[in-house]
């Protein structure tokens, strides 16, 4: 099966300048776990995931501790969100974009998701422009 047969044709995306607060709202509305970031031509230049946002909210030492049990409360995260809420998405997005094309196979997508631990992958055309996304559930529901 090709990606074109099961992709979700959702073009909800962020711009580099979209603020972190706006991005969180858009993630909530779209129901997606990450959103592609596009340039003026609609080309995908990054991806902002829930994971990217959580990493941005956690204090630096969390990278070493690998556990949230050291956090005294979530107040610290809320304070941090107020600090970075107006900052641009570009600052926190993943710039090394993993994307697929409509002609790629379902097996290729599954392989990428497993190897790279991705919940969702943008689908782009030959010019690198966003034409949809593939979620893990899109694959699972067609098995």
């Amino acid at each position: 099966m090709k990606v074109r047969d099961f992709l979700r044709r959702e073009l909800t995306s962020l711009e580099r300048s979209t603020t972190v607060s706006q991005a969180i709202k858009l993630l909530e509305n779209s129901g997606l776990s990450s959103l592609p970031v596009v340039d003026e031509e609609g080309k995908v230049v990054g991806v902002l995931s829930e994971r990217d946002l959580i990493r941005a909210l956690l204090p630096g030492y969390m990278d070493m501790l690998h556990s949230a049990s050291f956090l005294p409360s979530l107040d610290q995260l809320a304070r941090r969100l107020r600090e970075i809420g107006d900052q641009p998405t570009e600052r926190y997005m993943t710039k090394e974009v993993v994307a697929v094309t409509p002609d790629d196979s379902d097996l290729h997508v599954a392989d990428l998701m497993l190897r790279k631990g991705l919940k969702q992958i943008p689908v782009v055309d030959a010019q690198g422009r966003l034409i949809g996304v593939v979620r893990r559930i899109d694959l699972l529901s067609r098995l």
């Binding site: 959702e10 509305n29 949809g132």
Partner: peptide
């Protein structure tokens, strides 16, 4: 209501680029 509209649009093979 917007969520329901989006879901229906996507299920019918239409690409969706809406502003929330």
């Amino acid at each position: 209501t917007g969520q329901i509209i989006l879901r229906d649009v996507l299920e019918r093979g239409v690409s969706a680029s809406f502003v929330w």
